[in-house]
Amino acid sequence: MAYVLHPTGNKGGGDPSHAVIQLKPDGTYVLLIGAMDLGQGAPTILRQVAADALGVPIEKILVSNYDNLLPLSVSTSGSRVTLIDPHAVVNAAEDLKRQIREWFAQQHEANPEDVEIEGETVYVRGDRERTVMTMEQVAMGAAWGGGYEPASLIGRGAWQPGKYHAHDPETGEMPNVGAISFGAALAEVEVDTETGTVDVLRFAQVWEVGKAINPLLVRQQINGGYCIGAGFALTESCYPYFPSVEYAPEKMGDYFMPTFEDYPQQMIFGIEEVPHPNGVQGAKGFSEGSASGPPPAIASAIHDAIGVWITEFPITPEVILRALEAKQAGVES
């Protein structure tokens, strides 16, 4: 069994993200944010966050995140996107709504504070019947002008979890302005003590993620993290490689990623939600942590099975046999 504390975002602060949301002439929105997707679904959850912040259906939001011309999101790393980027998106949405209120007030000779945006309907409070417009009409008016003043309705937002503070050189302390996600991993293994092979029979992993913005994506990251962690634990080796440095893999066939058959007979996953004060709707990142649980969980299950603590990865069959031999030699001496 293993317990994982996974820091999400830069603990010392700094590390901002930026977002832009543009209202298009047809009343849809484009979210521009340089949050690279590696398959983890960043554009999906940011689209969800934008839809919530603007109070519109998700279909109204298009995300563009594949270009270095886009607003900076620093990087897809450190499980930071889910913690940080939603703030930038929410800020951009608020900025856009402020601009919409100002433009709308100008057209109807009203105060911006009196302009009400209810999802895709805009009106002046107290004068709804005369002033009400759909967002599509607002967008069209602002974009094409005509009887209205043209305006570039483009919201901008930036956010970082506090200013950067270096750690104290004396104590190593630093302010924790990010968030920490918590995971537990449980492995059941069978070890063949003659050949050294390890079979992970069942594996369970539970993560506390603040708020699962998209539970299917959270589930994929938990189960996917198993594969990456289990490969690291049992089969995959990078420098100095296995069994030693001169045996670098030459082709893909020399590098041993887990296959379907290496996958456990039973996989159990769980999601716990305790909203985090630093996250939008309490959400925080966790994904890389799901690859951190399997190696120690598998190693401790191996210890439970054969009574030897293995302290190197990958735990190849050879590592197991050598550990068993050393144990035997210790008993005999």
Binding site: G39, R219, Q220, N223, G224, G225, Y226, C227, I228, M257, P258, T259, F260, E261, Y263, Q265, M267
Partner: peptide, 23 residues
């Protein structure tokens, strides 16, 4: 069965580790 799926599909690798969802 789950084992038959695991065995038949074993030649197709998924680095994201979506094996469970595929099964």
């Amino acid at each position: 069965s789950r084992d038959e799926i695991r065995s038949y599909m074993a030649g197709n690798l998924c680095r994201c580790g979506s094996y469970e969802e595929i099964i």
